[in-house]
């Protein structure tokens, strides 16, 4: 009972906020609705017993991706009324593509039983939730059976990092940087000098 209630609550809010993402006029509101949609999808994952995916969704999508979106939306100066100008002009072609997609969806829905049933041979069977948690199950796979892929992914990320630095980092002349060595090596004499001033004469 409570399960069903939770499901419908999360599902309704997810669908509603997903619609609002594309319907709201203010892009900042769109991003906020997107975050709401992510949170509710995470709730749906928890209901499915996939708590690891739920947490990852919150951490990665809400914590990183949505915040990034927020930054971009706030930094870009887009005139949305300007963007909407061509709406009339592109309506026919857009509507046509929409119709094609709709037809495809209907066809897929009608031909649900088209393919022969798949002989399920999952790469690894999921252990029951009573045995171990999701996180434990994933960890015991990633670091044993899939260690090779895990290491390769690490190398790919390393290449991405090297690439980003190679292609964007440049040495700019004239930038004042802190040099600890210079600071430590500085002697008392470099910082000031003692000038004997005779009374009444000034520093002329």
């Amino acid at each position: 009972m409570i399960y069903t209630l939770c499901f419908y609550l999360f599902a309704t809010i997810t669908v509603f906020s997903a619609i609002m993402v594309i319907a709201s006029r203010n892009p900042v509101h769109s991003v906020l609705y997107l975050i709401l949609a992510f949170f509710n999808s995470a709730g749906l994952f928890v209901l499915l017993g996939a708590e690891f995916v739920a947490m990852i969704l919150v951490i990665v999508y809400v914590g990183a991706v949505a915040v990034l979106f927020m930054f971009v939306v706030m930094m870009l100066d887009i005139d949305y009324s300007e963007l909407r100008k061509g709406f009339q002009k592109y309506l026919p072609i857009g509507g046509l593509i929409g119709l094609v997609l709709l037809a495809e969806l209907v066809l897929v829905g009608m031909g649900w039983g088209l393919g022969s049933p798949v002989t399920t041979d999952p790469a690894t069977a999921t252990p029951a939730l009573t045995e171990m948690t999701n996180t434990e199950a994933l960890g015991s796979l990633i670091y044993t059976k899939y260690i090779f892929l895990f290491q390769m992914a690490g190398l790919i990320l390393l290449v991405a990092m090297i690439g980003a630095i190679v292609l964007t980092h440049r040495k700019r002349p004239g930038v004042k940087k802190q040099s600890v060595n210079k600071q430590v090596m500085r002697r008392r004499g470099d910082a000031y000098e003692i000038v004997k001033v005779k009374p009444g004469q000034g520093l002329g």
Binding site: M152, I156, A160
Partner: peptide, 12 residues
């Protein structure tokens, strides 16, 4: 994985 490691390096 192999293909991406290779391609990503080649793009750079």
């Amino acid at each position: 994985m192999g293909l991406e490691l290779q391609s990503l390096s080649l793009y750079v």
